[in-house]
């Protein structure tokens, strides 16, 4: 009994150290939602750049958004522009009623280690007739800096 107590006493500091280690200091998989806000303009085509500005981030999958059936299919990415933590995503719809306002267009699956930060930049967006439209891009569930295209 005494030995057991002694062992617990000796091991407690190690256990408390482990318990205090932040969860972010392990490899984990996270999902980032990508939104595009096209205001009053219908969003028929879009292209954004998402990249990690801080931390060890690797992109491991790209999923479609939730806007009914319009952007449900996973967007395309440019393999040439792909690096471990950077991806250029694009998609389009030929549906008559393209979505307006803030639209969830994609979910990006990430493998991360430690703290990380993302940056998102809308690269292009167009309405149903192909005309360029102003948009902003943002993400949810991940620390992100949204950068307008002009400032990139």
């Amino acid at each position: 009994m005494f030995r057991l107590l002694l062992a617990c006493f000796l091991l407690f500091p190690l256990w408390s150290l482990a318990a205090e280690a932040p969860a972010t200091q392990t490899v984990r998989f996270e999902t980032v939602n990508v939104y595009i806000d096209s205001g009053d303009h219908p969003l028929a085509a879009w292209q954004v750049e998402l990249k990690a500005t801080q931390g060890d981030v690797k992109i491991v999958g790209v999923e479609g958004g939730d806007h009914r059936d319009l952007y449900r299919d996973p967007p395309y990415y440019d393999p040439k522009a792909l690096t471990a933590g950077r991806i250029i995503l694009a998609s389009y719809t030929t549906a008559d009623t393209a979505p307006k306002g803030k639209t969830l267009v994609a979910r990006v699956h990430l493998r991360v280690f430690g703290d990380f930060r993302l940056s998102i930049t809308p690269m292009a967006a167009a309405g149903p007739t192909g005309q360029s439209i102003p948009t902003t891009a943002s993400t949810a569930n991940a620390p992100t800096t949204s950068t307008p295209k002009d400032k990139e």
Partner: peptide, 9 residues
């Protein structure tokens, strides 16, 4: 299920 995830090269 109904969700599709595009693989990365």
């Amino acid at each position: 299920g109904q969700r599709k995830i595009r693989g990365i090269i």
